[in-house]
Amino acid sequence: MGKIGLAFRLFFRTLTDQEFANKAQKVADGKFTLEPPRSETPEPPAEPPPPKPAAKKKPMAKEPSRSEALTLMATLQREARFIDFLQESLDAYSDAQVKAAVLEIHRDCRSVVERLFAIRPLLEIEEGEPYEIEAGYDTERIRVTGNVMGEPPYKGTLFHHGWEATKCELPQWQGNTKSANVLAAAEVEV
């Protein structure tokens, strides 16, 4: 794996996983070596394979030579001007100006995210409705908060229905390492 890819993985994992962050802190301080991977894989919650027709992966000529995170950023920029938007300060503009731009960007980002990830709620239940958690529930899919006492079943109220990606089909990038960090080429009109 390229260093950039690794850096991104470490970055996101440190941000989202407290236990990992503690270890990373020690590594950074030179006090700890990371254990070899255990049987439980550090992958995100097992993603159900998309119900794809004859899911035969197309043979790719080259190994992708940059992080998929960058490919995603480039896609969002290309189709929805997402980086332009993030990089611009909002201070100078009126609400109406911001709204006008955001409507376009939001619509286009949404269509990219839908196409690549098809994000759906984890629970098809209205937020605010009562929800009962069975014993042996999947802790990766449901997080219990508040006065958690004793063992499940718990009775509670759905606060957030959660999200999951029902597929992950990023574009394949096949450029050379020289341009791996380019998110949007400079444009020159002749």
Binding site: R115, E169, P171, Q172, W173, Q174, G175
Partner: peptide, 10 residues
């Protein structure tokens, strides 16, 4: 090809 060096299946 959806952009230079970028292949996406649509």
């Amino acid at each position: 090809c959806v952009a230079p060096s970028t292949i996406e299946a649509r």
